[in-house]
């Protein structure tokens, strides 16, 4: 009875992990013709090139780091604030919760396409239209390298805050009310109650939201692919201003068919996520020990 799941799980979840590890030490392009494009081991060649020679990869890594730091921290702050603001179980709050959660269930392609129009460079774009109404000339939002990552961060907070909010709400609601009652009898003000009761007791939820949104943020693809195309059929936008890890993986693997090299990128992605998750878990553990 376990067999159907285990067979599929091994074939499409476990085997690929090892296979891509093996590929990451190879030159591999699916043609594997001795003369035209040979395949074979390159030892650490792929990783060497990634870390020491490939400027596009460095750019992708840097952009992704900025993006992850910005998106994750702002999403956590926004969702915690939303959870607190919408905590009371009133009718208007229930409706607002739905509104804030909607992006989590909307097709990401659809929302990216709408944002693409919001940030259109000419006067027809929504944001430039607002600026025009205030007498400011249009801005080339998607062609300004300094704005690429912030725009993607904004889209990510917009899309992810509602999800974190639900988790925080569940966390807040599982805190027994007598803590607050006791604190109020002791004369704690709202800020103190938040600081010394709500926040510490939300730590496990915080860790969970943190890890899941970090993992999610590292995997950004649609926004980069649709909003920052380049003329040569590649991804990343002008001067690779929005190039990130997964889009670069796609670029190397499925546009240039460097499957070995793309596997190495995948393993770097995995390594980063793995280390960050471990640090996050360790940190939250040691915080618990301190208290």
């Amino acid at each position: 009875m376990l067999a159907p799941f285990v067979l599929l799980f091994v074939a499409f979840s476990i085997y690929p992990i090892f296979a891509s590890f093996r590929l990451s030490f190879m030159r591999y392009n699916a043609i594997c013709d001795e003369e035209l494009s040979p395949c074979g081991s390159v030892r650490f060649g792929n990783y060497y090139r990634l870390f020491f020679e490939d400027d596009r990869f460095h750019k992708a890594l840097l952009n992704t780091s900025y993006y992850v730091v910005g998106a994750v921290s702002l999403t956590i702050i926004a969702s915690l604030m939303l959870a607190i603001a919408l905590q009371a179980d009133t009718k208007s709050n229930r409706i607002l919760r739905v509104v804030f959660f909607l992006p989590s269930v909307t097709s990401s392609i659809a929302t990216v396409l709408v944002w693409g129009w919001v940030f259109r460079g000419d006067g027809v774009g929504l944001l430039n239209g607002v600026l025009a109404a205030m007498g400011i000339s249009p801005v080339e939002w998607l062609a300004t390298p300094a704005l690429a990552v912030p725009i993607l961060v904004l889209m990510s907070v917009w899309g992810g805050a509602g999800y974190g909010m639900i988790l925080f709400l569940a966390g807040i609601n599982s805190i027994p009310t007598y803590y607050y009652e006791a604190a109020m009898i002791d004369g704690a003000n709202p800020r103190q109650r938040f600081r010394y009761i709500t926040l510490p007791l939300l730590k496990p939820v915080m860790t969970y939201v943190g890890i899941t949104s970090i993992i999610g943020a590292f995997q950004i693809f649609e926004g980069v692919y649709l909003l920052f195309p380049t003329s040569v059929g590649s991804v990343g936008g002008l001067q690779d201003m929005a190039l990130m890890l997964v889009p670069y993986l796609y670029d190397q693997g499925f546009i240039h068919f460097r499957l070995g090299y793309a596997s190495a990128i995948a393993w770097v992605l995995f390594g980063i996520i793995f280390i960050i998750s471990l640090i996050n878990l360790k940190l939250s553990k040691s915080f618990e020990d301190l208290r």
Partner: peptide
Amino acid sequence: LIYLTIIGSMMVPWQVGIIPNFLTMS
């Protein structure tokens, strides 16, 4: 062991397997 493997695999971003899976499909 099976259960731990299932839990452990959730740590791996699915993009890691995308290339082998593509080759399997091919």
